[in-house]
């Protein structure tokens, strides 16, 4: 038998540099993630790219979220409720890979980030 409520023993805040996408974050980021979900359609990606801010407004993003999106600031988007699986559809529009995202979030150059990954082998 597993101990009762093991989730209680460790809180999301105890995992450094990690954003747990729980109900609170999912509510905060609902419109942002809903917009990113729309990028499964090539037509919507095109519409977004033509007028990013207008597209954000059509999904009722907050002013902070609009800025984070137009800046492609991943950490800020996470803090504002973005979920990485959805955000990847946004950053993909600009050809950013998950390694580009990793480099941006860790403040490393792409080469440094790749070296950091390889160093863990």
């Amino acid at each position: 038998m597993i101990a009762a409520s093991p989730v209680q023993q460790i809180t999301p805040q105890l995992i450094p540099g990690t954003y747990i996408f729980d109900g609170r974050m999912a509510m905060k980021g609902y419109n942002l993630n809903r917009m990113c979900y729309s990028f499964n359609s090539a037509d919507n990606r095109k519409k977004f790219k033509a007028f990013p801010e207008a597209y954000c407004h059509s999904y009722h993003l907050t002013r902070e979220q609009v800025h984070a999106v137009t800046d492609l600031d991943v950490l800020r988007m996470l803090q504002l409720g973005g979920n990485i699986y959805y955000l990847a559809k946004l950053t993909g529009i600009y050809g950013m890979t998950v390694q580009d995202l990793g480099a941006q979030q860790t403040g490393l150059s792409l080469d440094e980030f790749r070296a950091m990954l390889a160093s863990q082998a």
Binding site: I15, L87, L101, G102, Q105
Partner: peptide
Amino acid sequence: QLDGERAGFINK
């Protein structure tokens, strides 16, 4: 780990 300041974390 794709997201957060700990992005790139691996635990062999």
